[in-house]
Amino acid sequence: MPKLLHISASPRGENSDSLRIARTFTDAYRDAHESDEIEHWDLWDGSVPDFAAGARAKMTVFGGGEPQGEEAAAWAAARRAFERFASAERLLFSVPMWNGSVPYVLKQLIDVVSQPGWIFGVDPEKGYSHLLEGRGTRVAVVYTSAVWGPGLGPEFGSDFQSTYFTDWLRWTGLTDISEIRFHPMLTGDRDETRRQAEAHARELAKNF
Rank of each mutant, 00 (worst) to 15 (best):
R135T: 10
G46T: 08
Y143V: 01
I180N: 05
E37V: 08
V102P: 05
D50T: 13
F62C: 11
T144S: 08
Q108L: 14
E89R: 09
A205T: 01
A72H: 03
W41T: 04
A53L: 10
P116N: 08
G149E: 14
L4Y: 00
L131V: 07
R170N: 14
G127K: 12
L204M: 11
R90P: 01
S114P: 01
R23H: 14
H6S: 11
D27R: 08
P154G: 06
E155Y: 02
V142A: 08
I7Y: 02
S87G: 09
G134K: 06
T175R: 13
W75Q: 12
D176Y: 00
L131M: 09
D31Q: 15
A22I: 03
G121I: 10
V139P: 06
E71I: 05
A28F: 00
L4V: 01
Q161Y: 01
G64I: 02
D123L: 08
L5A: 01
Q196R: 15
S10W: 04
K206V: 10
A146S: 15
A73H: 10
G188A: 02
D17M: 10
A88E: 01
V105Q: 12
F156A: 14
D36W: 01
D176Q: 07
S18L: 05
S18K: 03
L5G: 00
R138L: 01
M97D: 03
Y164I: 05
W118Y: 14
F156E: 11
H40V: 14
A197Q: 05
L152Y: 13
A81D: 03
W41V: 03
S114A: 13
R135Q: 13
R80G: 10
A22F: 06
T172W: 07
A81P: 06
F120V: 06
G63D: 12
H6R: 11
S145Q: 12
D176G: 02
A81V: 03
D167S: 15
R170T: 13
I110F: 07
L19Q: 12
P124S: 12
H130G: 09
A32W: 11
F82Q: 02
